[in-house]
Amino acid sequence: MLQYKEYLRPTTIEELFSCIKAADKAYDIVSGGTDLYAKEQERLSPMAIDISRIPALSDISLEDGWVKIGANTPVQQFIENAVLVDQVPLIRHAAIYFADQQIREAATIGGNVANSSPTGDIIPTLTAMDAVIQTLSMEDDQEVRRQISILEFIQGPGRNVLKDGEIVEAILCPVLTGYGLAFKKVGQRRSLCISTVNSAFMVKADPAQKIFEDVRIAFGAIGPVPQRVSDVEKFLVGKEISEEIINEALNLIPADLVKSRSRIEYRRNVVPNFVKAGLMEALAELGIAL
């Protein structure tokens, strides 16, 4: 059975928007296709617009302390591409947990973001980094771009602020140096696995390695949208680094952080364990052993 009755494959931004403009029925934007082609046909739109052949959407560039990552960048590139490993190392920590390598070779970061699944494994890393989603649309033959923070971009399971005719063009990530990083994930197995809880950690210490200078903790899969644990982050910043202070911070995890309606007790048990484990491992990456 064909996934789509109609399948368009523009090769330029101009062609893309003329396809979109001419569309007389609902359509899905296909990048890597790994989510859409895994679904049953009745859950898809009748038409596909494949953006994988638009070179402009595959660009990776560095400007003013930000990395701009084209939507079509395959997830595996965060493990293999030297620029990405160097500039956004946190995503590598998540990418290695993402599906399996064969899926990562096809699945793209733009797809992961636009799909806006609560369990998307890249999303907590973008949330921790305060990444920005750059969208593109065409209004009156003019390219219109919006830059939206990841937390604003994702509105719910599979829901985001993309308007009709608007696509994810690129992900903008700040280059953040000097951080210890960690990613924690649990599902029912360890390869090709949907997250029950996933989380990203970034920790920066003062030059003497004594004081928390910056702490970023982001969770996914525990509610409809990704979340930062800002109460814990704020508490720790400025404090002296110790296991005790981390333990103390665990008490500040909001009781309603877990918003999922299933496996609530389990997720509530995992969250503090991950906060502690993630922070300890991130500190260890900085050479700080507690």
């Binding site: 996934q3 399948y7 494959r9 296909v30 890597g32 296709g33 790994t34 082609y37 895994a38 596909a48 494949d50 994988s52 052949r53 390598q101 064969q102 899926i103 070779e105 096809a106």
Partner: peptide, 18 residues
Amino acid sequence: SVLIDGVLKKSCLIPIAQ
């Protein structure tokens, strides 16, 4: 699983157009 331009991928997820 097949090799596409030398990269191992799952061919059930690849639109032929790609």
